[in-house]
Design a protein around this nucleic acid. Structure first.
Length: 267
DNA sequence: ATGGTGGTGTGACCA
């Protein structure tokens, strides 16, 4: 059987519903994970998602900032939300999905962006990002026997040299500083996570999922970063069919600055 | 060279 899951930082789900619907009609993933919904729970657009067959929707929102959601064609059970750093931000939601004989714990994250200055002594937002990363190191992909794991989201870190348009020019730019990239690699190592977007793509090849709004011509400049990620427990690696990065969505009407990334599995 | 654009929700904040 096939199974597909998409992660997409939508930067306001209410404003972006036309392109969310366009994406779901065309690409039909089994599960859509959203970040930066910027939507209080009572105002989340449930009806259009359910009308498209995404009958199982779990949300964790707040007014104005952050917010994550999972919309699924298949049942979501045992959902929970963890308050990373204990400051009440809506940045994580998790549930179990049963795919054929496999039981999978799914995590959807929106990691703090971290502000502009990569120094926690003068920029508390960077300190918060580093604390969030530390807390993520306790999350294991293989922690529960008989349960596989998938972790997706906007992790706001581009870990490898070719996850940014210029490694050298971004070394002091938040999202690609050594303390962040090494922190992310440590989360993956400690938790035994597999980077599915790099599984079949050599480290020499550029991968981007985000292009700034501030460029005059994002496509011509092509100064992207890989900020969005799909990880899994080691056991799911052999079942990955392909990863699809929908670069064209950056050119859709009123786009998010992030594009959808989909993992297709064959179990 | 230190801006540039976009979203929330109406004044700064955040990305």
């Amino acid at each position: 059987m096939s199974f597909s899951i998409t992660t997409w930082n939508i930067n306001s789900v209410r404003l972006r519903m036309p392109i969310v619907e366009q994406f779901l009609v065309r690409y039909k993933p089994d599960i859509l994970c959203l970040q930066e919904t910027k939507c209080p729970n009572g105002e989340f657009p449930m009806k259009p998602l359910k009308a498209l067959g995404y009958e199982h929707v779990i949300i964790h929102g707040q007014k104005g900032y952050h917010g994550v959601a999972i919309a699924s064609k298949i049942p979501l059970t045992e959902d929970h939300r963890r308050d990373y750093c204990g400051i009440g931000d809506a940045r994580h939601i998790s549930a179990i999905v049963q795919v054929g004989s496999r039981r999978i714990r799914l995590h959807n994250f929106y990691v703090p962006a971290g502000g502009d200055e990569p120094d926690r002594s003068i920029n508390p937002k960077f300190g918060h990002k580093l604390d969030f990363i530390e807390e993520m190191k306790a999350l294991r992909a293989d922690g529960v026997p008989g349960t596989s794991s998938i972790l997706v989201g906007d992790l706001n870190i581009a870990p490898l040299e070719n996850d940014v348009w210029s490694h050298k020019q971004l070394l002091k730019i938040v999202s690609h500083t050594p303390v962040e990239t090494e922190g992310m690699l440590d989360i993956m190592k400690k938790g035994n996570w597999l980077d599915l977007m790099r599984l079949n793509v050599p480290a020499t090849e550029k991968i981007y999922t985000w292009w700034s709004y501030r460029a005059k011509d994002w496509e011509a400049a092509d100064r992207g970063r890989r900020l969005d990620h799909i990880w899994s427990s080691q056991d799911l690696g052999p079942s990955l069919d392909r990863i699809e990065i929908l670069r064209e969505a950056r050119g859709w009407n009123r786009p998010s600055d992030h594009v959808p990334v989909t993992a297709h599995f064959r179990f």
